[in-house]
Structure formats: structure tokens, C-alpha cells
Amino acid sequence: MEWLNAVRDWIVNFCNTFAHDVYRNFIAEGRYWMLIDGLKITIIISICAILMGIVFGSIVTLLRRSRFRIPRAIGYVYVDIIRGTPMVTQLLITYFVIFGSVHIDPVLVAIVAFGINSGAYVSEIIRAGILSIDKGQTEAGRSLGLSKSMTMTHIVLPQAVKNILPTLCNEFVVLIKETAVVGYLAIPDLTKAGDTIRSRTFDFDMPLVAVAIIYYIIIKFLTLAISALERRLRKSDLR
């Protein structure tokens, strides 16, 4: 029964070390608070940015659908630049160049930068949603004498929402993960919190894996919600 004892010892040893590590990384000096606060900041930035993104995205969609060339061009250039440059670069430019001369809370800067970034993607999502609706729908509305905007609000958009909503939620998921780069502005978000713990305890695996698990749980939860939403929207198609 030698080996059984060896296994038992190993398990006990492992559990002890694990418990010790957990204590050292998360409990000692109240470090779990760093993760909770970091999570709060990540969520605040994500939610504010997506709301801003929806507002920006809607405005840009209107610009891009304008009858006039100049607003259309502005919308196009905005989306083109945002999509063609890395998020981190945009974040740094917003912080150091655009708000470089004024003293402003980096969290606010991050919200603005992510909001502007998300706006470009949201406008693409809305645009694709509108384009997915058959042209015959618009023609039917216009042939009844509805104006362009009435046709949009009563006929096209209510149908487009079904395509827009799930994709919009996906954009939100992407955004949450992307906010991990706000550490560049020394914002103590979730990722930065894990990194800070790592630098204090010199433990690599535990804090970083813990951060990954927290992100994963949030995203998993959202993804499940999106699937449920998609199922419900599809059901109303069949009636």
C-alpha cells in the first residue's frame, strides 16, 4: 500500500499548496477587492461605450444614408479609419493627442475611445440589418404614399431589428474583451488587476487564470443570453 500513501500525500500536499496560493493571491491584503474593483471598471467602460456606440452608430448610419454627398463621405471616412487602425492605437491617440492637454479621468477617455470605435462597428451592423430587408418592402411602403422616413420607422427598421439585435450583442461581447487594453492608460480594470496581483505575489498562473475565468464566465453568460434572444426572434418568424 506504499503507492496509495504516496498518492494521498501528494493530494494533501497539492491541496495545501493550492489553498495557500489562493490565500496569498486573493485573500491576503484583501486582493480579491482588486479583482472586484477591476471588474466594476471593465463593466462600466463596456456599458458606457456600447451605449455611446449605439448613439454614434445610429448617427453615422443616418449620415451614410444621406441624400447628400458630404455627410455620406464623413460617415464613410469615419468607419474606414476606425476599422483600419488598431484599438490600442486609437485609445492612445485619444488619451495623449486629443485629450493630451487637458486633465481628464482616463476611464472617461477610455469610454470615449471605445464609444467612438464601437460606433463604427455598430453603424456597419445597423447598415447591414437595413440592407438585409428586401427592397420590395420599401417599394410597397412608398407605393402606399408613406414617406421615406415613415417607411423606415414602420416597415424596414422593425424587421431589421431582428437581424441587428443579435449582432449588436456580439459586438458588445467583443467590446468587453477589447477593454482589456485600457491598462495602457494605467486604468485598474480586470486585466490590470490580475497583472498587479501577479507583480506583487510573483505568481503567474493563479491571478491571470482567475482573470481569464472571470471574463469567460461573463462572456458565456452573455452568449447564452444572445442565443436565447435569437431563438425567440426566430420563433416570431414562424408564428
Binding site: G136, Q137, E139, S143, L144, L146, S147, H154, Q159
Partner: peptide, 29 residues
């Protein structure tokens, strides 16, 4: 728009509004 209100149109592909009931399709305009 005012002119089109006097001219009804029926399409090959029907183009009913799928998100509205028959009643709402008819009464919308």
C-alpha cells in the same frame, strides 16, 4: 407621396409586411 396615395400598386412578389398582421398591413397607411 401625395400622388402615390392616389395610385395603388400591387407587386408580383406581394410585398406584404411580414412583421404586421393582415389587419395592420391594411390599416398602416
Amino acid at each position: 407621396n401625395a400622388v402615390r396615395q392616389k395610385m395603388g400598386m400591387v407587386f408580383q412578389q406581394f410585398n406584404l409586411f411580414p412583421h404586421l398582421s393582415v389587419m395592420d398591413n391594411i390599416t398602416l397607411a
